[in-house]
Computed example of a mutant assay.
Amino acid sequence: MLAPENSPLKQTPLHALHVARGAKMVPFAGYDMPVQYAAGVLKEHLHTRSHAGLFDVSHMGQLALKPKSGKVADAALALEKLVPQDTLGIAPGRQRYAQFTNNDGGLLDDLMVANFGDHLFLVVNAACKVEDEAHLRAHLSDACEIVSLADRALIALQGPKAESVLEKLCADVSSMKFMDAGPRRVGDIDCFVSRSGYTGEDGFEISVPSDKAEALVAALLDSPDVLPIGLGARDSLRLEAGLCLYGHDIDTMTTPVEGALEWSVQKVRRSGGDRAGGFPGADKILAQFAQGASRRRVGLRPDGRAPVREGAALFADAASSDPIGKVTSGGFGPSLNAPVAMGYLPSTLSAVGTTVFAEVRGQRLPLKVAATPFVPNTYKR
């Protein structure tokens, strides 16, 4: 997402480091961000899959929900008024994927929620963080103190070598499992560490005070296993992993069921009991759980080598004039050496193996509906 015209771009605490390392900088969500470094997108992508990649994601929003009662359960129950997930069920030291919904069942944003024992820690998308904070303040201020953690940077270390690199600075990380999260001492810096990420690989996200970020990143980049990675490879990695990009694959017009995110809504919020429903758009979302939705996000594998990009119209056959859906993310998958895409189709045409056609430069190219992730994930369970 580009910054508004004539709006000065913000810089992350690692901006000088990116420039010094020769990054190509581009506008993204109002920030000047590295899209690639000297190695290039392809090598950065493959290095993350084989070794470890280091990403600056400091443009993301970080927030703390501190319960006024002193009981973290009260903050979790308050948050359940805004998300369809079981946030009360997040154990201390654990993290869960969630979405803010609107009254029509659409998604205002997706986010991560961690239980730090005495408060909840939230990470939200960069383009939505101002609106998300206002949303929380408007609805949860009676129960929670909402604290913006704008003085913190956020980095992600992803790939099969991530653990061996990070445990040299933080021995505790070797005992962490996927979606464990909490305060950790990394080197001599007090950080928040989660074993999670946006690549499908094992790895970590590390929240660090802004004034310590450059020193921590420099220490991690000292390892020959680690390369800095830009937005270009971040996008191709998450696409291969079948992960949604907010504003593209999911948005305010998409429900969790349409977005194939049913797995993220726990049973206690869906059926039976006094905590079922109670979130914005619950009537529509729960009806779709019961009856299905008319459309669905699917994985797509184009025939041949030509990528099918975002926005391409999808058709039931090579000759029909009426589109039945569209591609929401698409590009070349370096790990597969083949193009991959995601998009929306009528639920009746969403079965794996179904052939549809995309309009690309005036031609109809065949694609097959495919299971996601396209590349198996390697999370440490």
Rank of each mutant, 00 (worst) to 15 (best):
P8V: 04
T12A: 07
A16T: 02
L17H: 02
A20K: 12
Y31A: 07
Q36F: 11
L46H: 13
A52K: 03
A64V: 13
K66C: 14
K66Y: 14
K66V: 15
P67N: 02
K81N: 06
V83R: 07
G93R: 12
G93V: 12
R96K: 14
F100Y: 11
T101G: 00
N103S: 10
D104M: 00
G106P: 01
D110Y: 06
V113W: 10
N115H: 12
V123G: 11
A127V: 06
K129W: 00
A134T: 05
R137W: 12
R137M: 13
H139S: 08
L140M: 12
D142F: 15
D151Q: 15
L157N: 00
P160Y: 05
E167D: 01
D172A: 15
V173K: 00
K177A: 12
F178W: 10
A181F: 07
Y198W: 06
S207P: 02
S210E: 09
A213F: 12
A218Y: 01
L220F: 09
D222W: 03
D225L: 01
L227V: 02
D235E: 08
R238C: 08
R238Q: 07
L243P: 12
Y246H: 02
H248L: 12
T252H: 09
T255K: 02
W263N: 12
S264Q: 07
Q266P: 06
K267P: 04
A276T: 09
A276C: 10
G277V: 03
K284R: 10
K284I: 13
Q288W: 06
A293E: 03
S294H: 14
R295K: 03
R297S: 10
R301G: 05
A306W: 11
A316S: 15
D317T: 14
S320I: 09
P323V: 00
I324H: 02
G325Q: 10
G331Q: 13
A341G: 08
E359A: 15
V360I: 12
P376A: 00
N377M: 13
T378G: 10
